[in-house]
């Protein structure tokens, strides 16, 4: 137990980053196919990150700029440590003490805040615009997300992710079937989380030149891309834990997370970008109403 536990603590961040980056590679490939292109090789993202890591020089704009990628990845790795990754007899819990959902919801923000601060010090107005858009949109998708989370927590009368997983013991008891309204609301929020189109106002390449990360290069960009892959993995695992009853082994974990990864991807391929205020108010309309319906189901 102890050796494997220590091993997983060391390995998990790398596994997360690799999985996340590979998914992104596959995503680029799929998008290319839809647009009648060939697209880059699947492992292109990983190669890019490795290339960035091998860069010898970098420029910095100040202390916060220098610290931001470090802090961001600290936040993401910490989130990973408190998230139940595999359940069942060979579970991987790391430090999760059964994974408190409220802790997860708040500690996930740690990395984002650090990144926002770093982007702020870069002095590029586009970065600041990106951050302001990102935070505004966060208030938007937080409404359906919080409603879904509170529904789950009240339904099972627990804030522990582990207990929520345990309650979904069989296929039919998965929360995506058991509380469908909460699932749909959370799914809308997930579109905002992943920042694919139509909710990519934060990086909006054609408008604000990829926004927050635009000044980062070399080793900084390498860390931030690693962080991006890992963070995608964290979000996917959280959703699998909450709505698909967790995963007992890596194969099913990969299958389930990939399923969740495809949803925002497919939505994004066929949609153009919202304006920021449209994105915010979109989340406050139907997704919120659907979430509230879920509430009624739980209360009654």
């Amino acid at each position: 137990m102890d050796t494997s536990f220590n091993l997983w603590i060391l390995l998990m961040p790398f596994v997360g980053a690799l999985v996340g980056l590979t998914y992104m590679g596959i995503g680029r490939r799929i998008i290319a196919r839809v647009q009648h292109r060939y697209g880059p090789p699947i492992f292109q993202n990983i190669v890019d990150v490795l290339k960035l890591y091998s860069k010898k020089t970098a420029i910095t704009h100040g202390v916060m700029f220098h610290l931001a990628p470090t802090l961001a990845i600290t936040g993401t790795i910490s989130t990973l440590m408190f998230l139940p990754i595999l359940t069942g007899p060979h579970g991987i819990y790391l430090f999760s003490f059964k994974g408190d959902l409220i802790l997860l919801m708040y500690i996930m923000v740690f990395g984002c805040l650090a990144m926002a601060l770093g982007a702020g010090q870069s002095g590029n107005p586009n970065s600041a615009i990106g951050v302001s858009r990102g935070l505004s949109q966060m208030v938007g998708y937080e409404a359906p997300f919080v409603i879904a989370m509170v529904t789950l927590m009240v339904q099972f009368n627990t804030t522990s992710v582990h207990d929520i997983i345990k309650a979904q013991d069989s296929f039919v008891h998965w929360n995506m079937f058991q509380s469908p309204f909460a699932f749909i609301a959370a799914l809308f929020a997930f579109l905002g989380f992943m920042g694919n189109k139509p909710f990519d106002v934060v990086i909006a390449p054609a408008e604000i030149a990829s926004g927050p990360p635009s000044e980062f290069g070399g080793k900084y960009l390498a860390l931030m891309q690693t962080n991006r892959g890992m963070f995608a993995f964290v979000k996917l695992v959280l959703y699998v834990d909450l709505f698909m009853g967790g995963a007992a082994n890596f194969v099913s974990l990969l299958a389930k997370t990939f399923f969740f990864y495809l949803i925002p991807l497919f939505v994004g391929i066929v949609n153009p970008r919202f304006r920021t205020e449209q994105a915010i108010t979109f989340f406050w309309k139907w997704p919120t109403v659907i979430g509230l319906l879920g509430f009624l189901m739980v209360i009654l």
């Binding site: 610290l67 470090t70 802090l71 990845i73 600290t74 936040g75 790795i77 910490s78 440590m81 408190f82 430090f95 003490f97 059964k98 408190d100 959902l101 409220i102 802790l103 500690i107 740690f110 927590m153 009368n157 627990t158 804030t159 522990s160 207990d163």
Partner: peptide, 21 residues
């Protein structure tokens, strides 16, 4: 409903930060 160990959280965040830094 649930539990959180603040000491574990602080230690984890601190350790990870120091290592990465």
């Amino acid at each position: 409903l649930g539990h959180v160990s603040t000491i574990a959280v602080m230690n984890t965040v601190g350790t990870v930060f120091v290592i990465v830094f």
